[in-house]
Computed example of a mutant assay.
Amino acid sequence: MLRRLYDWTLSLAARKSAEWWLAFIAFVESSVFLVPADVLYLPMALSRPDRAYRYAFVATLASVLGGIAGWFLGHYAYEAIAKPVLEFYGKYDEFEALRQSSGMGFIVLMLVTSGLAHLPPIKVVTILSGVIGVDIWLFIISAIIARGARFYFLAWLLRTYGEPIREFIEKRLGLIAGLGAAALILLYLLIKYLT
């Protein structure tokens, strides 16, 4: 099922309405959807490198708006909507573990790492931010920085290196970003427990 969903999302890049689909996928990814917007963003930016930064803007804006929707789901509709969504994707236990052990500083750090590297998935963090009451403006600023950095960095890579960088991005960028995010989390934990 996941492979069919991935292939369907990838097929949207060839449509005339691709930019609208990119906005839609980026929006729902941040609150309820499983497939990351990168799946659509990469082929779009590769086929139209002159629009890579425009697509980065669309993806960032829609992703931040989707994150705000996730925050509101967590804050105002956790039991009715957010909990069933998390259970559907098998993320409820991960969510509850994060909810029990997370302070405000750690949540902000997870906003950045999930925005950059999907570690943990962005929808989990946006909903969690609403549940524990992260200040909405801090949430929005963090989401703009993290999601913007991801999409604009991809735009720069694709504009600078073109098609040869695609394989690298698809196979290794997630790992590199994940390692960077893990290093940030470890650094945060070290500072927190050593001071």
Rank of each mutant, 00 (worst) to 15 (best):
L2T: 13
R3Y: 14
R4V: 05
L5G: 15
Y6Q: 15
D7C: 03
W8D: 11
L10F: 13
L12R: 12
L12F: 15
A13M: 11
K16R: 07
S17D: 06
E19L: 09
E19H: 10
W20C: 15
A23P: 05
V28Q: 11
E29W: 03
S30Y: 07
S31N: 06
S31C: 15
P36F: 12
A37F: 01
D38M: 00
D38E: 09
D38C: 02
V39D: 10
L40N: 02
L42G: 06
L42T: 14
M44H: 08
A45W: 02
A45P: 15
L46V: 15
L46Q: 06
S47Y: 05
S47T: 10
R48W: 05
R48A: 10
P49S: 14
D50A: 07
R51P: 08
A52G: 13
A52W: 04
Y53C: 04
Y55D: 08
A56W: 07
F57V: 06
F57H: 09
V58P: 11
V64K: 14
G66V: 12
G66C: 13
I68P: 09
L73H: 09
G74F: 07
H75M: 05
Y76M: 05
Y76G: 10
Y76N: 00
Y76Q: 04
A77D: 07
Y78K: 05
Y78R: 12
E79P: 12
A80S: 09
I81H: 04
V85T: 00
E87C: 07
F88T: 00
G90C: 03
K91D: 01
K91L: 11
D93Y: 08
E96H: 10
A97I: 00
A97L: 09
Q100E: 04
S102V: 13
M104C: 09
G105W: 02
F106D: 15
F106T: 14
V108F: 02
M110R: 08
M110I: 05
M110Y: 09
L111Q: 02
H118F: 05
H118S: 11
P120L: 01
P121K: 01
V125P: 11
T126P: 09
I127D: 06
I127E: 14
I127Y: 14
L128A: 00
S129D: 05
S129P: 13
I132A: 04
